[in-house]
């Protein structure tokens, strides 16, 4: 009975979100507006919440009526949401797939109904590329590459070996695989840069710290830490400090994401470089929605606009950081 109560509460909260979503957009746009059905993964991190906010706000300012649904990390919720969007005859459907596979049936239903689909942030694994119009999201390989290129430039003056330890994301996830590959590609031609240890930190602070503690004891010399996200880097900073070393000076740190806590550490000099993985793809998405619903052709793959931060840039950007 406890479980039911919370489920009811969660359903209530979702209902309210949905209502305010529609109401707000209808006020600003009126009757002839484009309707967009959007199914979000969930609210598992600050990154994801910023992503949701960006989509809601930019829909409002673009005059697009948004029907928003939270899948709470479950594919079946997402499929249900997409089916209900089809029934409601929305103009465009967009979603961030919880998992990569198993989408063909529901996407075919959307195609039969003549509703174009846009993927955001994560892609689907389907051989039929006509099932969706475009995929808007980060290029994880490019992110890893940017981190590697920074390191190559940073260690240009170094005479001896540069020993790197790597904290990978969750084993088998697309961001972990791609960020590892991009980084390895970028440092490939520089023989003095060596990845001496690489383990998964599961994208969390606790594991990032635990693995870094083990690295600090098992490796005789660590010059650089490459973390696949800011949270693991933040955990590793704790471990480095407990070992009596200075993060950012004794061990240089490069990571990916640029969430607020990471940017703070960068501004404080504890991280040296962060490659941004931008969650604020709302404006780009609304642009695409307008183009697609007007029948215009769009490229099949669109990358989010992203940048990189060094310590000075982080200090300047920090006050406006939303997430």
């Amino acid at each position: 009975m406890f479980g039911k109560k919370w489920a009811a509460l969660a359903a209530g909260v979702m209902g309210v979100t949905l209502l305010t979503g529609c109401g707000g957009a209808a006020d600003s746009a009126g009757g002839g507006a484009i309707t967009l059905g959007f199914s979000q993964v969930g609210a598992e991190s600050g990154w994801r919440t910023a992503n949701t906010k960006s989509i809601q706000e930019s829909a409002k300012s673009a005059g697009i009526e948004l029907k928003f649904s939270d899948a709470q990390q479950k594919q079946e919720n997402q499929i249900t949401a997409i089916r209900s969007f089809i029934q409601q005859k929305v103009k465009v459907i967009a979603f961030s797939p919880v998992v990569e596979s198993g989408w063909d049936t529901v996407l075919k239903e959307a195609k039969t109904a003549g509703i174009p689909v846009i993927l955001t942030d994560r892609s689907v694994d389907s051989s039929d590329k006509t099932l969706y119009k475009t995929f808007l999201g980060s290029d994880f390989v490019a992110e890893g590459k940017k981190a590697g290129e920074w390191l190559v430039k940073e260690s240009a003056a170094a005479t001896g070996d540069v020993n790197v330890v790597e904290l990978q994301g969750s084993t088998g996830s697309a961001p972990a695989n791609d960020r590892k590959k991009g980084f390895a590609d970028a440092i490939g031609s520089t023989s003095k840069i060596k990845v001496v240890a690489s383990q998964t930190g599961e994208f969390t602070r606790a594991k990032g710290k635990e693995v870094m503690e083990a690295f600090l004891k098992s490796q005789s010399k660590i010059d650089v830490l490459y973390a696949h996200n800011d949270d693991m880097a933040l955990g590793a900073i704790e471990a480095i400090e407990a070992a009596g070393k200075k993060p950012g000076t004794d061990i240089k740190i490069v990571s990916v994401d640029a969430v607020k806590d990471g940017m703070q550490a960068l501004a404080d000099g504890k991280i040296n470089y962060i490659v941004e993985c931008n969650p604020l793809l709302g404006p780009q998405l609304m642009d695409l929605v307008k183009k697609v619903s007007a029948g215009e052709e769009v490229p099949a793959r669109i990358e989010t606009q992203e940048t990189e931060f060094d310590q000075a840039k982080a200090k300047a950007a920090l006050p406006q950081r939303q997430y």
Partner: peptide
């Protein structure tokens, strides 16, 4: 099992789904 499932939800409600540093 009831608290195992609901409890993580309660924790997420408390933190609003964010990491509180």
């Amino acid at each position: 099992l009831i608290l195992m499932v609901a409890g993580r939800g309660i924790a997420q409600l408390i933190t609003d789904g964010q990491i509180i540093t």
